[in-house]
């Protein structure tokens, strides 16, 4: 981490305390509290509109909560000044739901952007790492194309490359395999697992592909209508008799 860690012994890498968010008169997150230990990967599940992406943005400091606070590496995200927040974000890679690729930059420039922002990496190394990342997701030779020339699945993979290229200790994935075919999804999940094993990154993965995230996550949380219905380890979710948890975990509906 670029910021000096303010973690005490046994403190989680990410602590979410009573996060509540109102939007247009409705409560979209209702007192969400959860801990994510260092080195673990939390699978964040829930139906569409449950507040998963919003929670992820609150943790990243992109959206301010109306109540509660988020501690990342021991730092209260809501109280950090612009400089310290920028430093903290250098430690976070994020794959966005809508790809969020910069239209004005080509693929290579998009992927290289986090490295150029951080500085200190020679241009030859940046180019080599961009090529390596693109090859890893099965898109070699598209560095000069622009996002408008890519399909949704290709954009998602480029977005994934941009998030992981600086090898940050924290990774947030908002539906990293949405719109991808099963083979590419599987490649992405394998890559996520490898990163988890190699680098010991702490990650939050939002996905509707429950079978895909089962092997890569060691903790799971289920949000429903802004409330945290479940939060625990794999053993705990497998033992849970909550109907919604079972529906998500086992993949069946009431109909």
């Amino acid at each position: 981490m670029t910021l000096l860690s303010a973690l005490g012994p046994g403190d989680p890498m990410i602590r979410v305390e009573g996060i509540t968010k109102y939007y247009l008169g409705a409560t979209v997150l209702d007192g969400v509290t959860l801990d994510i230990p260092s080195g673990s990967n939390l699978g964040l599940m829930g139906p569409g509109g449950a507040g998963k992406s919003l929670l992820l943005k609150i943790i990243a400091g992109l959206v301010e909560p109306d109540q509660g606070r988020v501690l990342v590496d021991g730092h209260d995200v809501g109280t950090l000044d612009a400089h310290k927040l920028a430093q903290l974000r250098f430690n976070i890679g994020m794959v966005f739901q809508n790809y969020a690729l910069f239209d004005s930059m080509n693929v290579g420039e998009n992927i290289a952007f986090p490295l150029r922002q951080r500085g200190g990496v020679p241009e030859e190394e940046i180019q080599a790492r961009v090529r390596e990342q693109l090859a890893l997701v099965g898109l070699p030779g598209i560095a000069h194309q622009y996002p408008r020339e890519l399909s949704g699945g290709m954009k998602k993979r480029v977005s994934f490359c941009r998030a992981v290229i600086p090898a940050p200790p924290l990774l947030f994935y908002d539906d990293p395999t949405a719109g991808l075919d099963p083979v590419t999804s599987s490649k992405i999940f394998i890559h996520l697992r490898r990163m988890q094993q190699d680098g010991g990154t702490t990650a939050i993965t939002i996905s509707h592909d429950i079978d895909g995230i089962k092997p890569i996550c060691d903790r799971f949380a289920l949000l429903d209508h802004g409330r945290l219905v479940f939060h625990g380890t794999r053993d705990e979710i497998e033992a849970s008799d909550d109907r919604l948890v079972r529906q998500f975990w086992d993949g069946f509906s009431d109909d």
């Binding site: 920028a86 974000r89 966005f96 790809y99 969020a100 690729l101 910069f102 239209d103 922002q117 941009r162």
Partner: peptide
């Protein structure tokens, strides 16, 4: 458009004001 497609969020996440 950059805001609604999360490009502005992506900038902020890369410490690009």
């Amino acid at each position: 458009s950059m805001v609604v497609t999360e490009q502005v969020d992506a900038m902020r996440m890369n410490s690009a004001p």
